[in-house]
């Protein structure tokens, strides 16, 4: 191998840094949406590589559903402290009160869909013209068709039939007032790429990504953490299991997987061997319909 050759992780990293810097160069008021999950943690790492020793040209924004894992919030606060960047938090609970929205009902009353309202309000409050997110195209079929610079109208809506052609590595971020662009720098990364990168860069993660003991409820083949946000019924089967999280979302809509993987090497081994996709195994909200994600995106979701 010639010394002028990058391996695949370095190629992905360079592409993502390029996208981050295009955001900095093209927009006046960008933001980075940070959830505390591994994909947004990788975004922060890429931003450090893109802009240090300078400051980030954008704040981190967390749309807090109030249903988070405590470990993810602790991680978020410690990380912001460590890197010295600005964090803006907006709460879905406040939106529900202010707008008199109906709290979701049911056993797993998820505020996931309501996040969109808070997100759109936050975009309006700060006049953000670009929001960087950690969505990947390998996650889901509708995401596989979305551009890296994805234009949303003033209602935050995605129109899959009117997407701009995106050629070479040239990104067109020009928009009208009121519109905004969702930018996905890790579009071309897969779940395994993310984990390999975390290993290579020795990035610290919230502890729930690693195997730990937890009280879980078995529901249609998935394991859901017992918490104040899940409405238990007398017939529910609760057990104590050794689990880890493959994705970190809300406690109400993210399932755990049984695992004894206590470090990154073990996790990578498990992911290579798995026969179930990340969303299929861990997301309770995607099973509703074939086009669930497409519909949510059209309404302003990430």
């Amino acid at each position: 191998m010639s010394k002028y050759q990058l391996n695949y992780l370095e190629q992905l990293e360079s592409e993502s840094i390029h996208i981050m810097r295009e955001v900095a160069g093209q927009f006046e008021r960008p933001a980075l949406l940070f959830s505390g999950g591994k994909d947004s943690i990788v975004l922060v790492q890429l931003a450090l590589k893109a802009f240090r020793p300078g400051k980030f040209p954008f704040p981190l924004v967390h749309i807090d559903t109030g249903h988070n894992f405590k470990e993810a919030l602790d991680y978020r606060d410690a990380m912001v402290e460590r890197i010295g960047e600005k964090l803006i938090v907006r709460h879905v609970g406040d939106t529900i009160k202010a707008k008199n929205l109906a709290e979701p009902k049911g056993k797993f009353a998820s505020r996931n869909a309501l996040q969109t309202y808070t997100l759109l309000d936050t975009i309006e409050e700060f006049k953000f013209d670009a929001c960087i997110g950690g969505a990947r195209r390998d996650e889901e079929k509708a995401r596989a068709k979305e551009r890296i610079f994805s234009v949303r109208d003033e209602f935050g809506q995605w129109n899959p039939k009117l997407q701009r052609p995106e050629l070479w590595n040239t990104y067109n971020g020009r928009i009208d007032k009121g519109e905004n662009v969702r930018v996905f720098p890790i579009s071309n990364w897969t779940e395994l790429d993310i984990w390999n990168y975390i290993r290579k860069e020795k990035i610290e993660l919230p502890s729930i990504y690693f195997a730990h003991e937890r009280e879980v409820l078995e529901h249609e083949g998935q394991l859901v953490a017992v918490s104040e946000f899940v409405n238990l019924e007398p017939t529910d089967k609760i057990s104590r299991k050794r689990v880890r999280y493959r994705t970190v979302g809300d406690m109400t809509c993210t399932a755990a997987v049984e695992s004894s993987a206590s470090d990154i090497d073990d996790i990578i081994k498990e992911i290579i061997a798995t026969k179930t996709s990340e969303r299929g195994e861990t997301r309770i909200d995607d099973k509703v319909s074939e086009a669930a994600m497409e519909d949510r995106k059209k309404n302003g979701y990430f």
């Binding site: 195209r137 079929k141 509708a142 068709k145 579009s187 497409e294």
Partner: peptide, 16 residues
């Protein structure tokens, strides 16, 4: 990936 594509049985957009 998109509903219209499944309904019409054709690929409309670039999918990755």
């Amino acid at each position: 990936g998109l509903r219209a594509e499944r309904e019409q049985g054709i690929t409309i957009d670039v999918a990755y």
